[in-house]
Design a binder for these strands. Sequence first.
DNA 1: CGTGTCTTTGACCGATTGGTCAAATGAATG
DNA 2: CATTCATTTGACCAATCGGTCAAAGACACG
Lengths: 210, 210
Amino acid sequence: MAEIPAEPQSGRGRTRIQKAKRQAILEAALDVFSQDGFRGATLDRIATAAGLSKPNLLYYFPSKEAIYAELLTGLLSTWLDPLRAIDPEGEPLDEMLAYVRRKLDLSRDFPRESRLFANEILRGAPNLGDLLSGDLRALVDQTAAVLRGWIAEGRLAPVDPKHTIFSIWALTQHYADFDVQICAVLGGDDPFDGAATHLETVFTRLLAPR
Amino acid sequence: MAEIPAEPQSGRGRTRIQKAKRQAILEAALDVFSQDGFRGATLDRIATAAGLSKPNLLYYFPSKEAIYAELLTGLLSTWLDPLRAIDPEGEPLDEMLAYVRRKLDLSRDFPRESRLFANEILRGAPNLGDLLSGDLRALVDQTAAVLRGWIAEGRLAPVDPKHTIFSIWALTQHYADFDVQICAVLGGDDPFDGAATHLETVFTRLLAPR
DNA sequence: CGTGTCTTTGACCGATTGGTCAAATGAATG
DNA sequence: CATTCATTTGACCAATCGGTCAAAGACACG
């Protein structure tokens, strides 16, 4: 009666084990995609990294693009949450410094996600373009308006709001995306301790009203 | 007598035409590599982009890696020149702002080179690792010492010198590497005008002695 | 035990990968 | 014109690519 053959990924994975295996695949795929990008990644390497055979991997996901897409969509919301968490009613400088902190924590705790995102953008964002000029743009516009209000009230030093947001993105993500370069220059130390205090200095001097 | 079969790339390309074709190949390769990284790029796409057949391309370059390597080595020197151009005898803030300017100009004029570099770093810098922990590290150490001296003299606000250099890299390269995202958020305007004045504000407030 | 479902895999497919090679062109020089 | 060298190309190669499929294995439940 049921024409649907197997489709463990339809609806939601029933078994917890299925969910776990799908998660393992996504984990492995994140490793591979974040290093070599979509085109550079191969199903064989993802399957091997996940401890599966290639046909078995394709039993849980219909295609390479499906894995990539699921990684990307799952990523963007997480990536923008810290921006949404800025409280227009809060103390401006504190809010901004807290945002920087959260964003830097993301770079420290999820560097592969950051690199995956960077790879997608470097390719021209073929799978993310709509979201960028849609949701993201709207969210930035909205946040920029908050910043402008704070500046008008004299509670934040005058800056270009959007470029300031870009600066936060650039400075925090840099520690995830260019981690190899930074470690090569700095040596063995953990870069993130120094980064946290440095970024606090940067944005305090940039944003604190005089 | 001469066992060397053809090797147009040995020594230096004799004919100007050879040089031109090699250059055209490097140009096309820069397009492809900077978008999809080393693994994601294909010789066919490079050859097509250069207006050559694949065997003809391999007549001028021995392998895919050779093209990539030549691009990378040619890049790194150009990429670090602005850093070397910092004059320890100059006015500290002016020197730093000028460095930011030069670096931002590089992002504007050579975005593909910036993206190529970013792609290589994202992969873990397998072809650049030695240079990073060698020449680059030495150059950064040296520049950091200059900054420390300026800070000690009170001619520059106290900052972490190396993280400050990282910040300059992050903020300037961001406008090349994430250009798609920035344009999606900003709309049609040229981001670099706003970027230049914004970055001047950032580093003036960060570095100007009080 | 048997039976039906879920999972895994080896074999395989056509297309594409980086790269080779011999032969066919082109151009220059005697 | 003949010769020589530089250039280009079509055919081809083994390996790998993303993906399919039928059959085997694992597992539940009666």
